[in-house]
Computed example of a mutant assay.
Amino acid sequence: MKHIAIVICNYNYERFIAETIDSSLAQDYPGTRVIVIDDGSTDSSRAVIEQYGSRISAVFKENGGQVSAYNLGVELAGTDYVIFLDSDDVLYPHAVSEVMRKFEEEDLAKVQFRLDVIDESGKQTGAYIPHSEPPADCGRLLREGWLYPSPPASGNAYSVSALKAVFPVPEGGINRYGADFYAIYGAALIGAVATIPQSLGAYRVHHSATPSVSFANSEQIKKAPKAFKERWVTLREIAKERMNLELPPAFHDFAHEKAYFGSSLYHASLGARWRWMLNDSRAYMHTIVANPFWSLKKKAGTLFLSSLCLLPYSPLSDFVVRYITNPLARRGTVEQ
């Protein structure tokens, strides 16, 4: 039997970490190892983690950021496969079994699966991510600069050998966070990616009672686009030095561009909305019209919705911006 490690990276999530560990220990795949890396938490996380004793492998390190925790997790996994589970998310009991079935069927670098979106209390929101599935040749498209549709960290399982071709990643600066960027896209440069089209876990979104343009927990909507660009630069360097691959200088990604769209148009005046559409929307429009992962129907629908932001009725424009940028504003399926 091949083994898999669930590596939980935690920082100051004492209110969620027990539920995350419990979901990992409840996996019905017998060859599952649970590792918890606490990145210098200053709350009561350590006391919660220590209660599990020998049922888990616990590592307490000085605070260095998420990338430092991933670097250590790849080194310590000691298994054929690994899932990096955020310490506020959960896996359903059959998640590892489904993932391992995929790995046994094919030679894969990564298996990804849908995540249901839950609120801070753990209640289902009715949304899930992602809605689009990457094609079999997503690695080729990535080498052309297209970031493929992927769930966030907790919805991915990796071949450890694939991750070792990418990690360790330089730590510090912008790389204190966003480690899943390097795992998600780095793995696709190494080998094939497969998708399980069902929800095998849950992604927790904090403070989601009032839908806005913000969706992700870790970074503000105005900071995330800049961070993505800097991470792409680092990934290009890793690909060139370790894989002899030359990635393009710029990447294309609708999730990235809709952050600019949302921060520029939300609560904006009619004049500001028109100016952005006329002068600054080229990259946004390109990731819709040329998107290799979307159907013609989806492209047309997104273009139509975007055009509604040019109407003078600002409540409609704000609703459309929320609908496009934040899945929770729809309370339905998610476009990522």
Results as ranks from 00 to 15, higher is better:
Thr79His: 04
Asp28His: 13
Ser159Thr: 02
Glu98Thr: 03
Gly126Cys: 11
Ile35Val: 14
Val193Tyr: 02
Thr333Cys: 10
Ala227Glu: 02
Asp28Arg: 04
Ala300Met: 09
His267Lys: 13
Gly31Met: 01
Ser214Leu: 09
Pro151Tyr: 11
Ala153Met: 07
Ile184Pro: 01
Lys2Pro: 00
Ser199Leu: 05
Gly64Ser: 14
Ala153Thr: 13
Asn10Gln: 07
Asn217Met: 08
Ile56Ala: 09
Gly262Met: 09
Asp116Ser: 07
Tyr185Trp: 06
Ile190Val: 15
Leu115Ala: 05
Lys164Asp: 08
Asp88Pro: 06
Pro249Phe: 03
Lys2Cys: 11
Ala209Cys: 06
Leu163Tyr: 01
Asn71Gly: 08
Gly78Ser: 10
Asp28Cys: 13
Ser295Gly: 05
Ala283Phe: 13
Cys9Asp: 07
Phe103Ala: 07
Ala268Gly: 14
Thr195Met: 10
Asp22Leu: 15
Arg275Ala: 15
Leu91Pro: 00
Ala127Phe: 00
Pro315Ser: 06
Thr333Glu: 07
Glu19Val: 01
Leu141Asn: 07
Glu104Arg: 14
Leu270Asp: 04
Glu105Ile: 06
Gly191His: 01
Tyr185Leu: 03
Ser281Asn: 11
Trp274Asn: 10
Leu200His: 09
Ala5His: 05
His267Gly: 01
Val169Ile: 06
Ile56Gln: 08
Leu163Ala: 04
Pro149His: 03
Met1Arg: 15
Phe60Ile: 11
Lys222Tyr: 08
Leu85Ile: 06
Ile288Asp: 08
Ala162Gly: 00
Gly145Ile: 01
Tyr313Trp: 15
Ser23Asn: 05
Phe319Cys: 08
Pro327Phe: 03
Pro149Asp: 11
Phe319Ser: 09
Ile196Lys: 02
Ala227Asp: 03
Val205Trp: 02
Arg231Tyr: 10
Ile17Ala: 00
Leu245Gln: 03
Pro225Asn: 14
Leu85Asp: 03
Pro93Ile: 12
Ser269Asp: 15
Met100Ala: 04
Arg275Gly: 01
Tyr70His: 09
Asp137Ser: 14
Ala77Gln: 00
Pro152Met: 12
Tyr92Ala: 12
Glu230Asn: 09
Gln112Ser: 11
Leu235Met: 07
Thr42Tyr: 11
Asn63Val: 05
Pro170Tyr: 08
Phe228Val: 05
Pro292Asn: 11
Asp39Lys: 09
Val169Ser: 01
Arg282His: 12
Ser150Tyr: 04
His267Gln: 08
Ser307Met: 14
Ala95Leu: 03
Tyr52Ala: 00
Tyr52Cys: 03
Thr287His: 04
Phe254Ser: 07
Tyr29Val: 03
Val59Met: 11
Ser307Pro: 03
Val96Trp: 06
Ala18Val: 06
Ala300Thr: 10
Ala272Phe: 06
Trp276Asn: 07
Val34Asn: 00
Pro312Ala: 08
Tyr92Pro: 10
Lys299Phe: 05
Pro135Cys: 09
Ala239His: 03
Ala179Leu: 04
Phe293Cys: 10
Tyr313Arg: 08
Lys102Asn: 08
Tyr148Glu: 08
Val36Ile: 10
Asn156Lys: 12
Leu245Thr: 02
Glu246Phe: 08
Pro225Ile: 07
Thr325His: 05
Val36Lys: 00
Phe319Glu: 06
His256Lys: 10
Lys61Gln: 12
